[in-house]
Amino acid sequence: MLTDVDKKVVAAIQGDIPISQRPYKELAESIGISEAQFLEAVRKLHDQGVIRRFGATIRHQKSGFSANAMVAWNVDEAKVHEVGKIFAGFKGVSHCYRRNPVSTWPYNLYTMIHAQAQEECVEMAREMAHTVGVEDYNLLFSKRELKKTSMEYFPSDDDD
């Protein structure tokens, strides 16, 4: 069960983190606790598995990666975990998920590939397929980004 302080800490770190010498001190002050209390709460939430990691949201188009593709893979269910680990190790892969297939769409593993050109995405998918021996996959290229935000689990009081 999360305390009110835990929820405030999550709300503080789910947005932009200040670029400063002591960003956690600034965030702590914004929610009315000490830097030490803030860091202890973050450690506790991490130890409990509530927070897995901190990550940056990169605007891939602005950083030189003008092509990206969601690749849907039809992987033998007995090998999906092993294949997923291998795919996740590829440098150009930012996401790797297992999802349930449906009768009209048999794909159960999904990766997001980023590159400078669509041809590079195609080549990376070929290399990935060859590495694990999977032949049934589909590349779905992004045409336009309509929304890119992170989930807000506990909106701060300032968001009213």
Results as ranks from 00 to 15, higher is better:
residue 157 D to I: 15
residue 42 V to Q: 07
residue 25 K to F: 07
residue 130 H to F: 08
residue 81 H to T: 08
residue 157 D to Q: 13
residue 138 N to T: 03
residue 20 S to T: 06
residue 53 R to P: 00
residue 5 V to Q: 13
residue 59 R to H: 11
residue 86 I to G: 09
residue 149 T to P: 01
residue 123 E to V: 02
residue 33 I to Y: 06
residue 152 E to W: 06
residue 143 K to I: 13
residue 120 E to I: 04
residue 153 Y to C: 01
residue 132 V to H: 04
residue 26 E to A: 11
residue 122 V to K: 11
residue 148 K to M: 08
residue 9 V to F: 08
residue 19 I to E: 07
residue 150 S to W: 06
residue 61 Q to D: 12
residue 105 W to Y: 14
residue 134 V to C: 02
residue 77 E to N: 09
residue 114 H to M: 09
residue 5 V to H: 03
residue 43 R to L: 13
residue 108 N to S: 04
residue 34 S to Q: 09
residue 36 A to M: 12
residue 46 H to G: 09
residue 125 A to P: 04
residue 79 K to C: 02
residue 34 S to I: 14
residue 97 Y to V: 00
residue 105 W to D: 15
residue 109 L to I: 14
residue 72 A to M: 01
residue 4 D to K: 12
residue 152 E to L: 12
residue 77 E to G: 08
residue 92 G to S: 11
residue 140 L to C: 07
residue 15 G to C: 08
residue 100 N to Q: 12
residue 102 V to H: 00
residue 88 A to D: 10
residue 112 M to L: 13
residue 149 T to F: 05
residue 131 T to Q: 14
residue 150 S to L: 13
residue 45 L to I: 10
residue 8 K to E: 11
residue 33 I to A: 07
residue 133 G to T: 05
residue 118 Q to E: 10
residue 136 D to F: 05
residue 112 M to I: 11
residue 83 V to W: 04
residue 3 T to I: 04
residue 90 F to Y: 14
residue 95 H to Q: 12
residue 39 L to K: 11
residue 120 E to P: 01
residue 117 A to M: 09
residue 108 N to Q: 00
residue 101 P to W: 07
residue 99 R to M: 11
residue 114 H to C: 03
residue 45 L to M: 03
residue 84 G to R: 09
residue 104 T to N: 14
residue 80 V to N: 01
residue 94 S to L: 04
residue 142 S to Q: 10
residue 156 S to T: 03
residue 43 R to A: 08
residue 87 F to L: 15
residue 142 S to P: 06
residue 78 A to S: 11
residue 97 Y to G: 00
residue 33 I to N: 11
residue 45 L to V: 11
residue 67 A to E: 05
residue 26 E to H: 05
residue 34 S to H: 09
residue 15 G to A: 05
residue 58 I to S: 07
residue 79 K to I: 01
residue 30 S to G: 03
residue 24 Y to L: 09
residue 114 H to F: 11
residue 2 L to A: 03
residue 19 I to V: 13
residue 97 Y to K: 03
residue 152 E to G: 03
residue 101 P to Q: 13
residue 146 L to R: 05
residue 140 L to M: 10
residue 137 Y to M: 00
residue 80 V to A: 06
residue 63 S to R: 07
residue 28 A to F: 00
residue 29 E to P: 09
residue 5 V to G: 01
residue 86 I to F: 09
residue 36 A to Q: 13
residue 82 E to G: 00
residue 64 G to F: 10
residue 111 T to I: 05
residue 82 E to C: 02
residue 107 Y to Q: 02
residue 35 E to D: 14
residue 65 F to K: 11
residue 58 I to T: 05
residue 106 P to V: 06
residue 49 G to W: 02
residue 137 Y to F: 10
residue 148 K to S: 12
residue 119 E to P: 01
residue 106 P to I: 10
residue 33 I to V: 14
residue 25 K to W: 04
residue 69 A to S: 12
residue 64 G to C: 10
residue 90 F to D: 08
residue 131 T to E: 15
residue 105 W to I: 04
residue 78 A to F: 01
residue 103 S to T: 15
residue 87 F to A: 14
residue 134 V to N: 02
residue 129 A to S: 15
residue 12 A to D: 07
residue 63 S to P: 02
residue 141 F to R: 00
residue 16 D to P: 01
residue 42 V to F: 02
residue 131 T to Y: 02
residue 54 F to W: 09
residue 27 L to Y: 06
residue 102 V to P: 03
residue 29 E to K: 15
residue 90 F to S: 04
residue 120 E to C: 01
residue 12 A to T: 07
residue 27 L to F: 03
